[in-house]
Simulated scan of single mutants.
Amino acid sequence: MSSKRMIITVGDARVGKSTVIKLLLEMLMLKGKRTKVYSQDTFGIFKAYENLVPIEYFNLLNDEADQIIDELNNTRLDIIIIDMPGQYIEKIRQYIESISLFEVVVRFGWKLTFLQPISHRNNCLNYLNQIIEIASNNANYVVVKNYHFYPEFREYDEKIQKKLSIIGGTEIELLSLHRNHYQMMDKLVKPYSECCHDISLILFLRSFIYQWIKKFQISVIKDNLAISYLGLD
């Protein structure tokens, strides 16, 4: 069976999509997975990772995303990560339908995962519901509970969690990290794991970042579905 996988991050803006991608990239690199990232970002969010994986900009809103489909025929890649813009669910729906995404990934022997970080906001739940409605059983789903925003996910637990389980989805956790820590790592322009060894940061801070990374990795590797759906098998 093919292990090639397209991972599409979706969800609200500023909910942690790029953070999760960075953490996932480092896990994929340790596994030796040949990975490419397509990003909507023009502000250098992934600059620290440009020496690790190819990162290419695309603009979904201007219908400039056809090159992504061409990559499905690239035998040198194992993983394609597409960082969709925050919100714009209707535009994403139109894009999926216009290129017959579900049929195309099957034709080229790939598998598809929707990766969505969530906060406590109802908008996240509405977005996830729409993604499930669009893709149904044509994709796998990984929800990331982002505790940076809120310690509880009552609405998700009550209304979505069971539905996600029925269609074979799974969930992982991203623990809270203070915004000052994010800013310090951004200033270093280094992958997160390298920040743990940068002596310009005090030891306490480096230790905190290390534990934050490690706990995310543990959340993934203890879940067999997450390992498979994120291309880490």
Rank of each mutant, 00 (worst) to 15 (best):
110 W>A: 04
109 G>P: 00
83 D>W: 01
171 E>M: 06
122 N>W: 15
66 D>N: 14
189 V>N: 14
182 Y>F: 15
99 I>S: 00
129 N>P: 06
113 T>A: 04
83 D>N: 07
74 N>Q: 05
125 L>Q: 10
178 H>A: 05
115 L>T: 04
68 I>T: 02
90 E>V: 12
108 F>D: 02
121 R>P: 09
93 R>D: 11
104 V>M: 06
146 N>F: 04
136 S>D: 14
169 G>V: 02
72 L>H: 01
107 R>G: 10
93 R>H: 11
169 G>N: 04
57 Y>T: 15
76 R>Y: 08
138 N>K: 10
168 G>V: 01
95 Y>S: 06
152 E>H: 11
156 Y>K: 00
156 Y>Q: 00
138 N>Y: 08
135 A>H: 05
61 L>I: 15
123 N>A: 15
119 S>M: 04
76 R>F: 01
106 V>M: 06
166 I>C: 08
111 K>Q: 09
129 N>A: 11
78 D>V: 00
165 S>K: 12
172 I>P: 02
161 Q>N: 09
123 N>K: 15
59 N>F: 14
60 L>P: 01
97 E>M: 06
115 L>S: 10
127 Y>E: 12
127 Y>W: 11
111 K>E: 10
102 F>N: 01
160 I>Y: 02
85 P>N: 13
158 E>P: 03
122 N>S: 14
180 N>W: 10
126 N>Q: 13
155 E>I: 11
67 Q>K: 15
134 I>A: 07
92 I>F: 14
104 V>D: 06
152 E>A: 13
144 V>W: 02
173 E>W: 02
87 Q>V: 15
187 K>R: 12
154 R>P: 04
124 C>A: 03
93 R>Y: 13
122 N>E: 15
86 G>M: 03
146 N>Y: 00
172 I>F: 01
148 H>M: 05
146 N>Q: 06
177 L>Y: 11
183 Q>G: 07
82 I>L: 01
90 E>D: 12
176 S>E: 11
170 T>N: 02
83 D>T: 00
168 G>A: 04
184 M>W: 07
184 M>N: 09
137 N>H: 08
166 I>D: 13
128 L>S: 02
187 K>L: 12
64 E>D: 03
121 R>N: 15
159 K>E: 09
142 V>S: 03
